[in-house]
């Protein structure tokens, strides 16, 4: 590691997400070899790195879609309780924590048999037991915010990729999450549709939302991120403020990576 320790005084805001000593192996393949991350409220942390460097794996360990092999995850000061094998020990706790982390996937993953509106209100109504009218109102205003008010009653398959991803972001926002986890939200999109999704994410960053953003869009990362992490070889190879990381990268691997992505 080029940088010995993450700058401790990055933010005085309360901690939203803390990852300590995260390791993850798939069989013999050790993908993460001890990763630390702290996101304070309002932080936008961009995670960059080559294909297969474990960016998705790290993000998915945060909400236990993957079981960490070692390490702890603390969300808003509350450590996720784990069994000795690493799995979440308390189903209700992990479900509650997942509800506070809005995740957006590369492939959108909207429920294809539900309309856009029903995708948005599914969890608020059926899991959080909010009144349907109230959830619908909020869903409609979120859809208006992402420019999809007229698509509320369409099925996802009838939407463009960019529209589906904006709907997926609205679905995550519908649960009023404390933080957002984005896994390459624009990688599956045609180039002309990337801008509309980035605009939505940019607006979320501007309103001070906490987010962790795995992305291959370097220009965008530099623009919105408050902190950038470069993953390589299962470790945080280098991290810091975007201007320093992109403007004056220290480690040879990061320099080479930035050259390769142009």
């Amino acid at each position: 590691m080029t940088e010995a320790a993450p700058a401790p005084s990055r933010s005085a805001a309360p901690e939203a997400i803390r990852v300590t000593g995260l390791r993850k192996s798939f069989g013999p393949l050790e993908v993460l070899k001890g990763v630390d991350l702290t996101a304070h409220e309002g932080d936008v942390i961009a995670v960059i790195g080559g294909s297969g460097s474990g960016k998705s794996t790290m993000l998915r360990c945060i909400n236990f879609l993957e079981t960490p092999s070692a390490g702890t995850i603390t969300i808003a000061g509350e450590p996720v309780r784990q069994r000795p094998d690493g799995t979440a020990a308390d189903r209700r706790q992990i479900e509650r924590i997942r509800q506070s982390l809005g995740m957006v996937f590369q492939q959108f993953n909207l429920w294809t048999h539900k309309t856009v509106l029903d995708n948005l209100i599914e969890v608020p109504v059926h899991v959080l037991h909010q009144p349907k009218a109230e959830a619908t109102d909020r869903a409609m205003s979120l859809l208006a915010r992402v420019g999809l008010a007229d698509k509320a009653h369409s099925y996802p398959a009838f939407l463009s990729g960019g529209q589906q991803q904006r709907a997926a972001i609205a679905r995550a926002l519908c649960m009023e999450p404390k933080a957002m986890l984005f896994d390459e939200p624009t990688s599956a999109l045609d180039p002309e549709l990337v801008g509309e999704v980035l605009a939505v994410i940019r607006a979320l960053a501007a309103e001070g939302r906490t987010m962790i953003l795995v992305t291959h869009e370097m220009k965008f990362a530099r623009e919105v991120a408050s902190h950038v992490m470069f993953l390589a070889g299962g470790l945080v190879e280098e991290e810091g403020p975007p201007d320093r990381l992109f403007g004056a990268p220290q480690s040879p691997r990061l320099q080479q990576f930035l050259r390769s992505v142009g």
Binding site: R91, R96, I97, Q99, N109, W111, T112, V127, A168
Partner: peptide, 14 residues
Amino acid sequence: PQGQVEAARAMGMP
């Protein structure tokens, strides 16, 4: 589609 199941899991569905 596994992604749809994962989306539900990620949203804390029992």
